[in-house]
Amino acid sequence: MLDKTGIAKRIAKEIKDGYYVNLGIGIPTLVANYIPETMDVVLQSENGLLGMGPFPFEGEEDPDVINAGKQTITMLPGSAIFDSAMSFGMIRAKKVNLTILGAMEVSENGDIANWKIPGKMVKGMGGAMDLVASAENIIVAMQHVNKAGESKLLPKCTLPLTGVHCVKKIVTELGVFDVLPEGGFKLLERAPGVSVEEIKNATAGKLIVEGEIPEIVI
């Protein structure tokens, strides 16, 4: 089974040289730590920054330099600042190559829910609805089951949707899955020490297993 770091490391392998990438809050943020230094990758923060760098050294925090999670960050050489309208302009215009975000639920046809639990929790969608509506390449990083032990990979989402038919790939602590255009979670890789049977039991939606499933290598 992968821990959060493991999920982040596995997702980092999906990033290609020359990509502009938007990382959501939570596990996706960790992905930045595992992008190979040999790669030219520019991180977009939707509050208006291209070229997001690591957290600042203690004492060097600047309240005017934050990411979309409101964390203090740094700007790398070659960064660019822009306003919120332009930020979502470049997202809608598909200039951002890859979006990685968390989710509460994903359905087997690629719908995603991650912003609201009616009557319990309302945080808002932030930039997630814009990102999932426009990005051509969306990877979800999440735990396979919720705190109650229920599968988050479902035939149909039960929570209010963030976007429809948009998720292409999912990485959880148990494995890596493609969301097929015709519907269904296709198991690509399983986490070290996790059997296909365990993944089947934790997946409520349609799981497609073809041939031998290799272990994740990170």
């Binding site: 302009g89 997202i91 809608r92 930039g127 997630a128």
Partner: peptide, 12 residues
């Protein structure tokens, strides 16, 4: 509650 890009673009 509105998508962030919708909020920004309605201002724009």
């Amino acid at each position: 509650l509105l998508p962030q890009g919708t909020l920004a673009t309605r201002c724009m």
